[in-house]
């Protein structure tokens, strides 16, 4: 019984780590630009496929659709992560210039539609390049289930959790300790006043979208070995991550991380009990939380000093 709980804990933390990472990526663009990338799900899927492509090209092991386990070994997986981060970062900049900047600050919510449209275009291009079939991505530490106090744990789950935690800790440090992070927080609070400090607000917003998109891509690369890489895999993840962000408070990065982990653990826990109740319980809970705390658990109080 204990082993089962441990198993739920590990897989809940692993998927929760991905939710938290993507939730954070939503928070990064929301706080700095008050807009969100609704193509984040497609970015996750493209990140995963791009990762598979890099592994395939550099290793030459197996076929594209069925990479040999050795394809992800050595420095190849980190290399794939770096490429995915860079390419998706660039894609994020493109998204900002094409789908956000023309509409930001204007009345209406055109950017919602334009980012969704950007995602659909991206997905269609992905389908044209890679085809609709899901492919397997091997984990860099192999796919053999490890025994941890009786619980079966996959190495990738540990890796996902570790990478997510390291990335989030690094971002937290960046935001609180570095000049750039403080500037980002200043832009998040008030772009006009940030400009008065000499901060190039447009550049910070561009950077926020690059960072957010890079996180989505790396998130896809992390999840792919657990499930399998698919251009459609990102939708569900992005939706859960978004829910986690809303639940924790979209404007509070640490709240978003908490919300992501909470959803992951809850999902794993409910699945243990009755798998088909999973989504129902999760979304009922989110609605309940928002009914009581409309700004999320740790969202900004609508109280400012006058």
């Amino acid at each position: 019984m204990l082993a089962t709980y441990l198993q739920v804990l590990v897989s809940g933390l692993a998927i929760g780590g991905v939710y938290a990472l993507i939730a954070l990526s939503f928070s990064i663009t929301f706080t700095t630009t008050k807009t969100l990338n609704f193509a984040q799900g497609e970015f996750i899927g493209v990140g995963a496929f791009l990762g598979v492509t890099v592994l395939y090209l550099v290793s030459g092991e197996g076929s594209f659709a069925a990479l040999a386990p050795a394809a992800a070994g050595g420095a190849r997986y980190p290399l794939a992560a770096a490429v995915v981060g860079a390419v998706l970062g660039a894609l994020g900049i493109l998204l900002f210039l094409a789908a956000i900047r023309p509409f930001a600050g204007k009345p209406g919510m055109s950017w919602v539609m334009s980012t969704i449209g950007f995602g659909i275009i991206l997905q269609s291009l992905g389908l044209a390049v890679w085809g609709p079939a899901p492919v397997n991505m091997p984990s860099p530490f192999g796919d053999d289930v490890m025994r941890l106090a009786g619980a079966g744990v996959r190495p990738q789950e540990i890796l996902v959790l570790a990478v997510a935690v390291v990335l989030m800790a690094a971002l937290d440090l960046l935001m609180r300790r570095t000049r750039l992070g403080k500037a980002m927080r200043a832009v998040a609070h008030n772009p006009q006043v940030a400009a008065l400090m000499g901060i190039n607000v447009a550049a910070v917003m561009l950077g926020a979208f690059a960072l957010s998109s890079a996180l989505a891509g790396v998130g896809g690369l992390l999840v792919a070995p657990i499930a399998s890489a698919s251009l459609f895999m990102g939708m569900g993840i992005a939706l859960k991550a978004f829910s986690g962000a809303i639940m924790g408070g979209l404007d509070n990065p640490r709240g978003c991380i908490f919300g992501g982990f909470a959803l992951g653990l809850l999902e794993a826990g409910v699945a243990l009990w009755e798998a088909q109740w999973r989504e129902i319980v999760i979304f009922l809970l989110i609605i309940l939380v928002l009914a009581i705390r409309p700004n999320g658990l740790f969202g900004a109080r609508a109280l400012d000093k006058v």
């Binding site: 000049r179 403080k182 500037a183 927080r185 200043a186 609070h189 008030n190 006043v193 940030a194 400090m197 000499g198 901060i199 400012d304 000093k305």
Partner: peptide, 17 residues
């Protein structure tokens, strides 16, 4: 900047330097 410390506010003032 309300959620940043006095020191960080001052540091931001010197951002361009």
């Amino acid at each position: 900047f309300p959620d940043q410390t006095v020191r960080d506010n001052l540091e931001l003032g010197a951002y361009s330097r």
